[in-house]
């Protein structure tokens, strides 16, 4: 799973969000490192919907602007859990090796 996909799924993990909400949440999650552009975001949303990982939740209109909310599906939650576990395993392994490296005498 690529980082923007992981971040989008993570952004939707605590509830449905609309497009701009996802963009802002992804920027927060990545500490400003990842800024999703509209074209990239909707390409990813189309793909995730086709893979059954997200679904349309509801629509709102705010100040005359349409906000379409998306939510994680059961498949999306499973995929996010699997990716989180994979990253955790890698992170744990990397941290263990770094600890070992630092503990070695220079």
């Amino acid at each position: 799973m690529r980082e923007p996909t992981f971040l989008i799924l993570t952004a939707l993990a605590n509830g449905p969000r609309h497009g701009y909400g996802i963009v802002r949440e992804v920027a927060d999650l990545s500490a400003g490192r990842v800024t999703l552009l509209a074209g990239t975001l909707y390409t990813a949303l189309d793909r995730l919907a086709a893979e059954g990982l997200i679904a349309h939740d509801h629509d709102e209109t705010v100040d005359g602007r349409l906000r379409r909310y998306y939510r994680l599906t059961g498949g999306g939650i499973t995929a996010l859990e699997a990716e989180t576990a994979r990253l955790r395993q890698l992170t744990t392994a990397a941290e263990a090796r770094l600890r070992h490296l630092r503990s070695r005498p220079a």
Partner: peptide, 22 residues
């Protein structure tokens, strides 16, 4: 409609043209 809403939400006030990146 929703994509344009997102683009307008993300655009700073006073902008009249999409950026080259967008």
């Amino acid at each position: 409609a929703e994509v344009i809403a997102l683009l307008l939400d993300a655009a700073p006030a006073g902008r009249t043209r999409p950026t080259a990146r967008e």
